[in-house]
Simulated assay, not measured.
Amino acid sequence: MITQQNIEEILNNGGHLVGTDGHKIGSIGQFYVDDDSGNPSWVTAKTGLFGSSESFVPLSEATVDGNDVRVPYDKDQVKDAPRMEADSQLSPEEEDRLYKHYGVGTGTDTGTDTDSDTGNDTRSAAAGTYSGVTTGTDDMRGERTGTHLSDDDFGTDADDRNRDDGHDTSGPNTDEAMTRSEEELHVGTEKHETGRARLRKYVVTEDVETTVPVSHEEVRVEREPITDANRGNASSGAELSEEEHEVVLNEERPVVEKETVPAERVRLDKETVTDEAHVNEEVRKERIEAEGVDDDGRDRR
């Protein structure tokens, strides 16, 4: 059960909404408290670029973890929730749409509207009953009057939260000026991994052909006539005999040896290329129109 003290601490310390996977869904914007019971029933989480969107999340199964609020939903489910105005009150129809999205319960409407000024509207949720007060006339339904609390509602003194002072120059109890506000678009960048590159070395086999000269010996028969120069050698042996004379022949053959030598160095390098990305986003701004005065600013009355 989230208490009023929990709400003050969370808003003053900038708490976050945490999902089922333990990751932060977004920063907490506002709490919505039922006027009758005073119990917090809804919380808004700031999502989108720079927290530009606020999504409603039910607190029926929420728990407090320090300055964070844990809910049994993931970030995608919260971001896809039906869009509601975060600064306005929740109507019964809007609650039904939110309950259906989160699967909290179908919501049973037991309230009745009569010709009187007030009626009771009771909705059943998975964790209990959420009862609010609706106002209306004849057969028209009014809006739920649950109170939303933001960090602007809390100060250092408890009495400051109950006094009827405006918090902005456009409030009902401040000076005569009106503040005109507008949204400014702030665009930043963040890095995302788009891919990976790696070097991988492997071995392939290829055929290499080359030519190398080789030599060999061949035998041939040479005959020379008997002359006075060689007659002595020719007559030195037996007159008649049987003999053999042998000559060894040689040849060259290719011998292959392989040696591993470095061929080149290869590395991966990165370079940054700057492109332009087109961003198109809607921004809201307030306009102030003067009624009952002329163009020169003077009162017509």
Rank of each mutant, 00 (worst) to 15 (best):
A234P: 00
V208H: 08
S236I: 07
M84I: 12
V248N: 07
Y130W: 10
K270V: 11
D138P: 01
S181L: 11
R287D: 07
G48V: 11
D36W: 13
R223P: 00
S150N: 08
E257R: 15
G66T: 04
S91K: 03
R141F: 07
Q4K: 04
G107N: 03
P82E: 02
G66H: 11
E252P: 03
A81L: 01
T129I: 06
G111L: 02
H245I: 05
N250Q: 14
S150M: 03
E217F: 01
R298C: 04
N13D: 14
D35C: 08
L240W: 03
T169F: 13
T129R: 12
N230P: 01
D294L: 10
D157C: 04
M178Q: 15
D152A: 08
R83P: 01
N280Q: 10
E9N: 15
H16V: 06
E257A: 09
V214H: 09
H101N: 03
V43Q: 00
A127I: 02
G51T: 02
D175G: 15
E182K: 13
R141K: 15
S150Y: 03
T205Y: 12
K191H: 08
G111N: 03
H278F: 11
E61S: 14
T135S: 10
D34H: 06
S124Y: 03
H16M: 11
T194N: 07
D36R: 14
V64S: 01
E217G: 05
T272H: 13
G292I: 03
R200M: 08
N39G: 05
E8T: 05
G128E: 05
M84N: 10
E206A: 11
E61L: 11
A81R: 00
N67G: 03
I7T: 01
S116D: 14
A177P: 02
P82Q: 04
S131I: 05
K100I: 02
L98G: 00
E54C: 02
A238H: 08
D296I: 02
T63H: 06
L240E: 09
T210K: 06
Q30R: 14
K285N: 09
A277H: 09
E259F: 09
N250T: 15
E259I: 14
P262W: 02
G128V: 09
M178Y: 13
A62S: 12
A126V: 05
K79W: 01
E222L: 12
V204C: 04
D295V: 07
S53E: 10
H16C: 08
G105E: 09
L268S: 04
D34M: 10
T3A: 03
H216Y: 13
P254Q: 07
D80S: 15
A125L: 05
L98S: 01
R300A: 15
H23I: 08
G29F: 00
E193R: 12
T272I: 06
E244L: 13
D168V: 09
D175R: 08
V248Y: 08
E239R: 12
T194M: 07
M84K: 06
I10H: 00
N12K: 15
Q5D: 14
T174W: 07
S241N: 05
G103V: 05
R180Q: 14
K100S: 07
S131F: 04
G297F: 08
E182S: 09
G107A: 05
